[in-house]
Amino acid sequence: MDKALLVIDYTYDFVAEDGALSCGQPGIDLEPYIVELTKEFLADGNLVIMPVDLHEENDPYHPESKMFPPHNIKGTSGRNLYGELHNLYEENRDRIIWMDKTRFSAFAGTDLELQLRSRGITELHLVGVCTDICILHTSVDAYNRGFDIVIHEKGVTSFDPAGHEWALRHFEKTLGAKVIRS
Score class of each variant (00 low, 15 high):
T157Q: 02
G155E: 00
V129A: 06
G24A: 15
I96Y: 02
D148E: 14
Q115P: 11
G78N: 04
A167Q: 11
G83C: 01
V156A: 08
D132F: 05
R103C: 08
G75A: 01
L42P: 07
K173A: 15
N92R: 09
D94L: 09
I73Y: 10
L30Q: 08
F104P: 08
S118I: 06
H170R: 09
D9W: 09
T11V: 14
V140W: 09
L126F: 04
G19C: 15
Y89M: 03
F171K: 12
E64Q: 09
T157C: 14
E123Y: 00
T157W: 13
T131F: 07
N58K: 15
M50W: 04
L37Q: 10
V179I: 13
L124A: 00
S105K: 11
I96R: 00
C134Y: 01
I49S: 02
F159S: 14
E123V: 09
D18W: 04
R79E: 04
R79M: 08
V140N: 13
Y89V: 05
E90K: 14
R119K: 12
F107R: 04
D29P: 11
Y10K: 05
H164S: 03
K66H: 04
I133Y: 07
R145V: 02
D59S: 02
G120K: 11
V156Y: 07
I8T: 08
F104W: 14
R181L: 06
T174L: 12
D44N: 13
N92S: 08
G146S: 00
L42V: 13
C134R: 01
A167H: 14
R169V: 02
Y89W: 03
D13I: 02
S105V: 02
I180C: 05
K74S: 06
Y61E: 07
V15L: 14
T110A: 04
G24H: 07
I28V: 13
K154A: 11
K178D: 08
S182Y: 13
R181S: 00
R145E: 01
K39S: 00
S22Y: 08
D29I: 05
N87K: 14
P32A: 13
G19F: 15
N144T: 01
H125P: 09
A167P: 06
I49C: 03
A106E: 15
E153K: 07
T174V: 12
H125I: 09
R117E: 12
D9Q: 09
E57T: 02
S158W: 12
A162H: 11
L85C: 01
G109T: 11
P69V: 01
T138C: 06
E36I: 00
L21M: 15
D132H: 15
I133T: 02
K173R: 14
R103E: 15
E64M: 06
D100G: 04
P60M: 10
Y33V: 10
L21H: 12
V48K: 05
